[in-house]
Amino acid sequence: MSSSAISRDDVAHLASLARIDLSDDELDRLGAELPAILEHVKVVQQVAGDDVPPMSHPIPVANVFRADVPRPGLTPDEALAGAPASEEQRFLVPQILGEE
């Protein structure tokens, strides 16, 4: 996939994956900007051969663990202090259109 063609519809799909309700203007603008950016960055596809391992972590450390010992967290009041809404010591959120 070396093409950096990306349509306005693609941008709309990406925005929905990213849960951002972009306006028509924003879709138009990103629809124009993203192809230009991708045109510049797609060079990465030409640089490295198959023998080059991808780097996910800049410093090679492994096995960083924590002992299974409880430590104090937040009180419910602290946890809920920043919540847009709460009820019965729980975070109140709008209706979830989900499973079932």
């Binding site: 409880p70 430590r71 967290g73 010591q89």
Partner: peptide
Amino acid sequence: NTATKMFCGCATAFGAEPNTQVCPVCL
């Protein structure tokens, strides 16, 4: 049945009062 969560030190007791076993990580 670990004493703490996968990625933070919060307790894991079943049936605890809501949002009493939370911290910045698991929130």
